[in-house]
């Protein structure tokens, strides 16, 4: 390492940093993916939380929804988001924002990624409620 100039050392260090970041994000995405799909096997109820400005507006147990319905969230500033609630997932049907990225995100049914509408500051999350009896087995 002695023959390297100072900027070359910095460059080497930063390249390693970038590689580690790339590897780290790939691993975390893979981990997220597997935990997200595994969750469909267990039967604990799905809870969807809709919040705006960090304040929870609705908490819907999706497992108890048998008839799909729409939910309109409007703010005082005239922003409007229509949420489509179904038994196996939740999606954004329409929004008054410009880019409509929240609508394009589609239906979510795991905690992998939330639906976010940044212009209207609305976040929809889905979580599995941990079951009350969390023991695998009891031995005496």
């Amino acid at each position: 390492m002695k023959h390297l100039l100072s900027y070359q050392k910095h460059g080497l260090f930063l390249t390693i940093l970038v590689c580690l970041l790339l590897l780290g994000s790939m691993i975390s995405i893979c981990l997220f993916k597997t935990t997200g799909t595994d969750a469909t096997l267990d039967s604990s109820p799905l809870i969807a939380t809709i919040s705006r400005d960090g304040e929870a507006l609705y908490e819907i147990p999706l497992s108890e929804v048998w008839e799909p319905y729409d939910l309109t969230i409007s703010s005082q500033e005239g922003e409007q988001n229509v949420v489509h609630v179904e038994h196996d997932g939740i999606s954004m049907k329409s929004a008054t924002c410009k880019d409509k990225l929240c609508v394009k995100t589609g239906k979510i049914h795991s905690s992998l990624l939330p639906i976010i509408c940044l212009p209207n500051r609305v976040v929809i999350e889905v979580k599995r409620e941990p079951q009350k009896t969390s023991y695998d087995s009891i031995t005496y």
């Binding site: 970041l21 790339l22 780290g24 994000s25 790939m26 975390s28 995405i29 997220f32 919040s51 400005d53 960090g54 304040e55 905690s111 992998l112 990624l113 939330p114 976010i116 940044l118 500051r121 609305v122 976040v123 999350e125």
Partner: peptide, 15 residues
């Protein structure tokens, strides 16, 4: 948005 759930996008945005 005051919701840390947004941080879930961090790995994707990193790549």
């Amino acid at each position: 948005t005051l919701s840390p759930a947004v941080l879930g996008y961090l790995p994707i945005l990193c790549i």
